[in-house]
Design a protein around this nucleic acid. Structure first.
Length: 664
DNA sequence: GAATGAATAAACACTT
DNA sequence: AAAGTGTTTATTCATT
């Protein structure tokens, strides 16, 4: 039988330095049409009324800010915006020779070493922050000027209604600016995240998508922009819109409020019906009010302390009754929400584009985590989202950022992974000695859904597949199934990779074929496997250390482990074996691939009843006996989150008996 | 440049 | 006989 031409996908270009230049598709990050550059220099003056003028300027300012934001947000993907901004970064020759426009982010990652990338990103961020601050400063100065002008004018005029409007306009502008700041920061963080290779240890926890919560952002912003006297000018005017506004913006971000036109509810509920606020992890008690939290009124600009809900309601009705001010504030809030919606739309679009680019199914309906695909996700899902020790609601693998589900895929995907997007021959597992299992764990969902070739060798994959089963043995067909189940990539070109699997099974001594009642099964001879190649960097403590820190395991630990657990290496079934410290432990395995980690897990994870001991000893037992005694137990790391149980035990069954195959 | 490991392709044998 | 399974050889590429 002919092998269908699968080769085209696989061997088209060997990746690496030579192939890169041929890739030209660029994700058109939100930059949209290129022409919007010179958007505005808020200059318009003239015959307009002060109010109109304000509005106009505000619009323009917003425009500029938006563009700026957009540009910056896409800065990484659109080389034009960052050309020449990273002088200090050392770029490989191969990159340097390419015209910048030709480089896609992926390619960048391919080409740049993780440290380089890191440096680049940091620079980029620093620059962006700086620019942003400058920009906002200017805006504020401008505002202040206007404010003064208005004040003078206001003295001569009846100040009833006009003044209110002006104030509102200012409020709006400020609000929006703050909001933009926040958004921008978010973008920055996300950018950094998305493209941060795992090897970059310096990633602070907050920069991780999982950890980005509005409160963090605020905190960050406060630090970053502490110098800004924004609120002061406002307060001068007698407005009580203070920093707190950022609070309101952040928390309303997630919700889309219906456009209330004129008379919003007195208490502003209509806009704030957000059930769960990001920052409200502690609050959210049954009798709570969206505008009440942490003992204070969350009305924008109002931080009045209220002992209890009753008092708060009272306060709400008195202080925030239906009047001009409340109405206006509500309107401001609406705008804020609208802005966020716009932003969300843009981000979503970008996400789509990214996913499309990565051949992922855009339809992925599960914005939030999906634990494990292997098993019915339903079973696991619930536990996954909240099982994390750090209280972070998302499993690294599939979880999505609270607001924008950006990281469907490679969220965590490591550079190494990205390296292999596309045709590659070399599996990096070896070089970076990234434990395949961890990588797999982290990007499990991604591989499952994205048609991306996994960066592991067939041997390591096969081993992984085998070790994942309780019996540590699989029939060829089961191995096939595992491949297809775990990797979208292996759902096509079947003839090719199946042949490769067979070839590997036969070729490597580490795979032992055992006759069974039902036929033959394949097992792994660990000893042989380890012998297979010299441990690249196994032992080196320093390396290990680097790796750990590099991967950000310190900070990441919890989520990482959770991810691992979630990734459900079946072996881990036992919920008991949770040992945070072990994250390092598993790393030290150092061996490249999937297996290495897994194996450790296995051996350690021995608790799980069904694990069969064998692996180490050559003599392979065949399936009949489920498992005798648990083997040794090295301290393993994986923190098995509770959900474990569900897992893959069934996995195997699935293939054999159940036609299930719900793998997306 | 050689050695090595891995991916791919393909031929062939055996079994079901 | 066909399909699946397993073995083997050859070629190519990438890395060391």
């Amino acid at each position: 039988m002919m092998v269908e031409s699968a080769s085209e996908t696989i061997r088209s270009t060997p990746s690496g330095q030579n192939g890169v230049s041929s890739l030209t598709n660029q994700p058109d990050g939100g930059g949209g049409g290129g022409g919007r550059e010179g958007a505005a220099s808020g200059e318009a003056n003239g015959e307009m009324s002060p109010v109109e003028l304000l509005h106009f300027q505000q619009q323009q300012a917003l425009q500029v800010a938006r563009q700026f934001l957009l540009q910056q947000a896409t800065g990484l993907s659109s080389p034009s915006s960052n050309e020449g901004k990273q002088p200090a970064v050392q770029v490989p020759v191969s990159v340097a020779m390419m015209s910048p426009q030709m480089i896609t982010p992926q390619q960048m990652q391919q080409i740049l070493s993780p440290p380089q990338l890191q440096a680049l990103l940091q620079q980029q961020q620093a620059i962006m922050l700086q620019q942003l601050q400058e920009y906002y400063k200017k805006q504020q100065e401008q505002l202040h000027l206007q404010l003064l002008t208005q004040q003078q004018a206001g003295k001569q005029q009846p100040k009833e209604q006009p003044l209110g409007n002006k104030q509102l306009a200012f409020q709006q502008q400020l609000l929006q600016m703050q909001q933009l700041q926040q958004q921008h920061l978010l973008n920055l963080q996300r950018q950094g995240l998305v493209s941060l290779p795992p090897g970059q240890g310096t990633v602070p926890l907050q920069t991780l998508p999982q950890a980005v919560c509005p409160s963090d952002l605020q905190q960050l912003w406060k630090e970053v922009t502490a110098a800004q006297p924004v609120e002061d000018s406002i307060k001068q005017e007698g407005l009580d819109l203070t920093t707190n506004t950022s609070n309101s913006t952040s928390f309303s971000a997630a919700k889309v409020s219906p456009p209330i036109s004129h008379h919003p509810l007195p208490n502003g509920q209509s806009t704030m019906h957000t059930p769960r606020r990001d920052s409200s992890s502690h609050e959210e008690t049954p009798g709570s009010h969206p505008l009440y939290g942490h003992g204070e009124c969350k009305w924008p600009g109002c931080e009045t302390l209220c002992e209890d809900l009753g008092q708060f309601v009272k306060h709400l009705n008195t202080e925030h009754a239906l009047d001009d001010r409340s109405t206006a504030q509500c309107r401001v809030q609406m705008q804020v929400v609208q802005q966020l919606e716009i932003q969300l739309a843009k981000e979503s679009e970008r996400l789509q584009a990214m996913m499309a680019h990565l051949h992922m199914r855009p339809s992925e309906p599960k914005p939030f985590s999906q634990p494990l695909n292997l098993v019915s996700s339903a079973t696991l899902s619930k536990s996954t989202s909240d099982t994390f020790p750090d209280g972070l609601p998302h499993p690294p693998t599939s979880a999505t950022a609270p607001i924008t589900p950006l990281r469907q895929g490679p969220s965590v995907i490591s550079s190494s992974t990205l390296h292999n997007v596309g045709p590659i021959r070399r599996r990096n597992s070896e070089k970076f000695c990234t434990p395949i299992s961890s990588e797999l764990a982290q990007n499990h969902e991604f591989y499952k859904n994205a048609d991306v070739r996994p960066p592991f060798t067939y041997a390591s994959l096969i081993r992984q597949a085998i070790l994942e089963t309780p019996d540590r043995q699989l029939t060829l067909n089961e191995i096939y199934n595992w491949f297809t189940r775990m990797f979208a990539y292996f759902r096509r070109n079947t003839a090719t990779w199946k042949n490769a699997v067979r070839h590997n099974l036969s070729l490597h001594k580490c795979f032992v074929r055992v006759e069974n009642v039902k036929g033959a099964v394949w097992t792994v001879d660990e000893h042989e496997y380890q012998k297979r190649r010299p441990p690249k960097m196994t032992g080196s403590p320093t390396l290990v250390k680097n790796m750990i820190s590099g991967l950000g395991y310190g900070a990441l630990n919890a989520s990482y482990q959770a991810a691992l657990a979630e990734s459900s290496f079946p072996l881990l079934n036992s919920p008991t074996m949770i040992n945070t410290s072990s994250a390092g432990g598993m790393l030290h395995v150092g061996h490249d691939d999937v297996s290495s980690t897994v194996e450790q897990v296995n051996s350690n994870g021995s608790n799980s009843p069904r694990l069969s001991p064998q692996q180490y000893s050559h003599p392979v037992h065949v399936k009949e006996e489920p498992a005798e005694a648990e083997d040794d137990s090295r301290p393993v790391s994986l923190l098995a989150t509770t959900n474990q149980n569900v897992t893959i035990a069934d996995d195997r069954d699935l293939e054999e008996e159940l036609p299930v195959e719900d793998l997306s």
